[in-house]
């Protein structure tokens, strides 16, 4: 490899074909190594790149499914969805609302619990960690079904318990706001374990000397948290914000099972709309919506990156 690079640097104006030949020679020389790293790339090409390109073509086509050929329709699927779909607007608003609420509250909750679990004098940390992580290893489908039983307006345990303390039954799954709260509860319950573990890992990696130095300088607990802990968690926080955003925009199974998008489509998400389009034989529009969702994720992620970066200085301090 070094030889080839050397040649290139010696002959900066070498012809295009000569450079290709050199590259191919180099690859041939390391053919066995390439052979052994090839499974990942083959799988990625077959199950990652190819479906994505196929999906892109589908989003620009009309297709009746099965073995029928696709008919090119250009951007019609995208335009139709964005201008005249009777349900996409509501689905978009619901998804954004759930994202806007669940993302900060979920991360804040996980961070608070992680900080508590990170306390030096805490006993049974392993037990707590296991308990918080348990929901993650439980089947989402089962959890959603159990939640729907717990939250049933007339027969659910939650209302039964509320009734014991004199609180009237809450229509958890049949009114808009309570249903959105129910979805939030379910997702927090399922997702917090992983978030707590990741935060805990990051917290334990922070050098204790930083806190000791801050203490000597007279910093109180809150100052230590905001001036040391939060900035030091920035890479982890960025990672979690981005992955959680992707997960929430692709929210489907839990909502489908808990509320089926109801009541009155108040928990109907973009992913559910996409699935309905596909189930309704509108594959091209379904694919187009998939790419629209991908674009939304890219835009939101970009904004999040810019915002999170701008909130901290290069030194890792919060901007006042």
């Amino acid at each position: 490899m070094a030889q080839a690079i050397g040649k290139r640097s010696v002959l900066p104006h070498a012809s295009h074909s000569a450079r290709w030949r050199a590259l191919l020679r180099e690859m041939w020389k390391h053919r066995v190594d390439y052979l052994f790293i090839s499974p990942f790339f083959i799988v990625f090409l077959v199950f990652g790149i190819y479906p994505m390109l196929w999906g892109l073509r589908l989003s620009l086509s009309r297709w009746a499914g099965g073995q029928r050929t696709m008919e090119w329709v250009g951007l019609n699927n995208y335009i139709g969805l964005l201008t005249s779909d009777p349900l996409l607007g509501k689905a978009f608003l619901n998804t954004m609302m759930l994202l806007g609420w669940i993302l900060p509250s979920g991360l804040a909750f996980a961070l608070i619990v992680a900080v508590m679990l990170n306390a030096r004098r805490l006993r049974g940390r392993g037990l707590f960690r296991t308990l918080y992580f348990l929901p993650f290893v439980t089947s989402g489908v089962i959890v959603a079904i159990v939640f729907s039983q717990f939250l049933d307006k007339n027969y659910g345990w939650v209302n039964l318990l509320l009734g014991k303390v004199g609180i009237p039954p809450v229509p958890w799954l049949v009114e808009a706001i309570p249903a959105q709260i129910s979805v939030t509860l379910l997702l927090h319950w399922m997702g917090s374990g992983t978030n707590i573990l990741i935060f805990l890992g990051a917290l334990q990696a922070i050098d204790r000397e930083l806190y000791e130095a801050a203490e000597i300088d007279g910093a109180n607990a809150a100052q230590s948290f905001f001036r040391i802990t939060v900035p030091m968690l920035r890479p982890v926080l960025l990672f979690m914000v981005i992955t959680a955003t992707i997960g929430l925009i692709n929210l489907y199974a839990q909502v489908k099972l808990l509320t089926n998008g109801g009541p009155q489509n108040n928990t109907y998400t973009m992913f559910m709309r996409m699935m309905d389009l596909i189930a309704g034989n509108r594959f091209g529009e379904g694919a187009a919506l998939g790419f629209i969702m991908g674009a939304i994720i890219l835009v939101i992620t970009f904004v999040q990156l810019r915002l999170l970066r701008s909130w901290w200085t290069v030194e890792g301090n919060l901007r006042s």
């Binding site: 009777p86 349900l87 089926n260 998008g261 009541p263 009155q264 489509n265 709309r273 309905d276």
Partner: peptide, 12 residues
């Protein structure tokens, strides 16, 4: 028995 269009109009 249900679906997004039904949900959009029937219960309201």
């Amino acid at each position: 028995g249900g679906g997004p269009l039904y949900d959009k109009y029937f219960i309201p």
